[in-house]
C-alpha cells in the first residue's frame, strides 16, 4: 500500500532534487569531491530518515486503528506474520527509496569525478541498517501507543541515539557519579547507539570501513531489531483489537 502513497513519492522527488543540487554546490567549491559526497550522502540520510519516520510510525498503527487487520486475522494469518510482514515490507520500500536516491548520487559522483564511490555504497547500506532499526523501534512503540506518541518517541531515540556515546564519554570526563552516572549508563545501554552506523566521514574521505566495525554494526542492528520485533510481537499478541 505504501508504494501508492503520494507523500512517499514527494519525499523521494525532493530527495532527488536535493541530490541533483549538489552539482551546483560542488561548482561553488570548484568541484571538490568531498563537498559532493558530503551533501549527497547527508541528503540520502535525511530523506531516508523522513521516510522511515513517516512509514514506521503510521503504517502499522493505521492498519490496527482502522481495523483493516480484521480482514487479515480472520484469515490464516498470525499477528506475528502480519507484524514481520509489515516490517520487511517497509524495509523494502526504504531499500527502493535508498536505491533511487543512491543511483542519482552515484551518477553525479561518476559524472563529476569519473569513478564509482564504493565506500559511499557501504555508507548508504549502513544508513539503511540504521533506518531499519528505526522502523523496528517505531513499530514496537506503535504496538502500545498512538501514532503521535510513536513519532515523539522515535524522534527522541533518533536524536539521543546519535549522542549517546558522547554522553557517556562526557559523563566519565566530568567525573559524574552516583545516580546521575547510573542514569546516563542506563540510557547508553537502552537507547540504540546509532553512531555505529554513521560512516559518512569515512566515505567522504574514501577511507574503507574496517571489516570488524562493519561486522559489529551488522550484528548490533540484527540483535536490536530482533529484540524490538520480539517485544512488539509479544505485546501485540496480547492486545485486544
Amino acid at each position: 500500500m505504501e508504494i501508492r502513497d503520494k507523500i512517499l513519492y514527494a519525499i523521494v522527488a525532493f530527495g532527488i532534487f536535493y541530490i541533483v543540487l549538489t552539482l551546483f554546490f560542488s561548482q561553488l567549491t570548484l568541484g571538490e569531491l568531498q563537498m559532493t559526497k558530503s551533501f549527497g550522502l547527508a541528503g540520502i540520510y535525511f530523506f531516508n530518515a523522513i521516510i522511515a519516520l513517516f512509514l514506521g510510525t503510521t503504517s502499522f498503527y493505521k492498519d490496527v486503528d482502522r481495523k483493516v487487520v480484521y480482514f487479515l486475522f480472520s484469515k490464516p494469518v498470525t499477528r506475528a506474520q502480519f507484524l514481520l510482514g509489515k516490517f520487511f515490507g517497509l524495509c523494502l520500500v526504504l531499500l527502493v527509496a535508498s536505491a533511487m536516491l543512491g543511483l542519482v548520487y552515484f551518477g553525479i559522483v561518476l559524472y563529476e569525478h569519473g569513478g564509482f564511490d564504493f565506500v559511499g555504497l557501504l555508507a548508504i547500506f549502513m544508513q539503511f541498517l540504521e533506518m531499519a532499526l528505526f522502523i523496528a523501534f517505531a513499530i514496537f512503540v506503535s504496538t502500545f501507543s498512538s501514532s503521535l506518541v510513536s513519532i515523539v518517541f522515535t524522534s527522541a531515540v533518533f536524536f539521543i541515539g546519535h549522542v549517546v556515546s558522547a554522553l557517556l564519554t562526557d559523563a566519565k570526563a566530568i567525573g559524574l557519579g552516583g545516580i546521575q552516572y547510573r542514569l546516563v549508563q542506563l540510557i547508553y545501554y537502552v537507547v540504540p547507539n546509532l553512531e555505529k552506523f554513521d560512516i559518512r566521514d569515512l566515505a567522504i574521505h574514501s577511507v574503507p570501513m574496517p571489516l570488524a566495525s562493519f561486522g559489529l554494526a551488522l550484528a548490533y542492528a540484527a540483535a536490536y531489531i530482533t529484540l524490538l520485533l520480539g517485544g512488539a510481537i509479544w505485546i501485540f499478541d496480547r492486545k485486544e483489537i
Partner: peptide, 8 residues
C-alpha cells in the same frame, strides 16, 4: 468473515 463496517 465480513466485519461490521468494513475498512480496506
Amino acid at each position: 468473515f465480513m466485519p461490521e463496517t468494513p475498512y480496506f
